[in-house]
């Protein structure tokens, strides 16, 4: 937590500027991540956690900007395209 007001010449302060995006860039990134993990056998609820958790900045940014419905629809669409059979096998222990 920030307890001191940063001084203007502090070399460790953020000095970068926000770069503008390009149309479709975020969607292409989202599609790749979802496809990679669907192909590894991840199911919707597990994969959604990758987006809802703020600790995964890439996927969480997509979640915040595009919304949960977009992510769910993308997962379902990708599953339809890639899933062969139900892969999820909860351990019996």
């Amino acid at each position: 937590m920030l307890i001191k007001t940063p001084e203007e010449d502090d070399p460790m302060e953020l000095t970068g500027v926000v770069l503008p995006g390009e149309p479709g860039g975020l969607e292409r990134m989202a599609e790749t991540f979802v496809e990679e993990f669907v192909r590894l056998g991840w199911q919707e609820e597990h994969l959604l956690k990758l987006f809802t958790q703020p600790y995964f900045l890439a996927t969480h940014r997509i979640y915040r900007q595009k919304g949960e419905e977009y992510v769910r629809q993308l997962i379902r669409k990708t599953q339809t395209r890639w899933s062969i059979q139900p892969r999820h096998q909860p351990n019996k222990e």
């Binding site: 926000v18 770069l19 995006g21 975020l26 292409r28 990134m29 703020p54 890439a58 969480h60 915040r64």
Partner: peptide, 27 residues
């Protein structure tokens, strides 16, 4: 990120609140 208030562990459930780049990126 240096400018958001966290919980008792210094972790924010809302994630970073700094301005974000809107462009592509990768790890």
């Amino acid at each position: 990120s240096t400018s958001y208030a966290g919980d008792s562990l210094g972790i924010s459930s809302q994630g970073a609140s700094l301005p974000e780049h809107q462009t592509w990126f990768f790890y």
